[in-house]
Design a binder for these strands. Structure first.
Lengths: 208, 208
DNA sequence: CCCTGTGAACCTGTTCACAGCG
DNA sequence: CGCTGTGAACAGGTTCACAGGG
């Protein structure tokens, strides 16, 4: 518990959380590192080590109580409270994310969407109405927004990031295939859809 | 060049490829490991090491020729030829991916889309018409499809994966928040949108 | 002199194996 | 006896630093 947790371990925390939610929904009350690991194609030692970075959650001889571990993981990942999120760029992908039901269940709520195209302003997708990007600072302050999703074209992504930084956002999930430069203290996550396929292409090519 | 390449290195190859495409489009002809690294927030040594796993591509004292490195990276990642891809699940996300223009430029072409809902069958999104999932085996053989994208609800994802394995697909990019069990030799990539936000949430929470 | 390619040193993350507790 | 938590051993990646080529 002393040193900082390895980044790969934090990624796996999300997997554990997702699996535990599933188990909880099925009414399962306890789970061993072994069974948790098997369902995710990991090893039991890995699961225990990962969790041990953050504290002691299990009972020797018994396993982990699903409900309490779920709670702990949410607290660790910061999703014990709901985060308000904005979406910048209302193209096909942005619209899909506006309507994506998976966010809410995991502690994220999309509270506003922005675009530059006049034709889109005022339109409603999911439960949010599209606003002009100039209203971003006001909206972020109004809703106390810390996280944003960027789904604009690559050429516009840096400008979007700049605006978000100025609006006080602390984390940006970037779907545009560009590297963003942000103010210190602003975290950036990348989802590169083509790159994800490329990784598969590489693996398949090497197995053939 | 000797041992297998580290997985993280292969992920970065995608970043290099993307950046090189950008440079090529701007007419830049040569690039140093230093400048490539800086634009991606990496170190020059890292770039050189990563590339060295696959051969020698640079000229000491000069750098890398953009065009030839681009070609080499495409060959390594397997995208020097276009992959035909199918999308299973035509919800909001599936539709967005059907119309996503970023795939084509990186060597992927969506050739068919499938769903179970009768109301969607026959509808056209992007340039592809939605077909019933029972036609998947025929369509995969017809177009010689090796890669698939799964955008069905979590409950249906394993069934989709089973069908794809039986249809001879070798790589699956899974957008459903579940772990898929596949036949040996079938690669699986995961894009978990909520998990991506969770990682940001964690980082922001620890910086605050 | 600038830049690549690379062994060697270093650091980070994973696996092992077992002590200890219910 | 089963299962967690954890130091110790190991493996995997990254950074350093420099030899060598244009």
């Amino acid at each position: 518990m002393g040193g900082a947790a390895p980044n790969p371990a934090v990624k796996r925390l999300s997997l554990y959380l997702r699996r535990l939610q599933h188990l909880a929904a099925e009414g399962v009350e306890k789970v061993s590192s072994r069974s948790l690991a098997e369902s995710l194609h990991l090893t039991d030692a890995q699961v225990r080590k990962d969790l041990a970075h953050f504290g002691q959650f299990g009972q020797p001889g018994v396993g982990y109580r699903v409900g309490s571990l779920l709670k702990s993981l949410r607290r660790i990942l910061g999703t014990d409270k709901t985060w308000r999120v904005v979406v910048v760029g209302v193209g096909d992908l942005g619209r899909a994310l506006l309507r994506y039901k998976g966010f809410r269940q995991r502690g994220f709520e999309v509270v506003a969407a922005f675009d530059v195209a006049g034709s889109k302003i005022g339109k409603r997708f999911g439960s949010t109405v599209v606003r002009h990007i100039d209203e971003l600072p006001d909206a972020c302050r109004e809703h106390d927004v810390k996280l944003a999703i960027v789904t604009v074209p690559a050429e516009a992504a840096q400008d979007a990031a700049d605006r978000l930084c100025r609006a006080g956002v602390l984390g940006i999930l970037n779907f545009a295939p560009t590297t963003l430069n942000t103010s210190a203290g602003v975290a950036v996550g990348l989802v590169d859809l083509a790159a994800s396929l490329e990784q598969l292409s590489f693996q398949v090519g090497n197995t053939r």
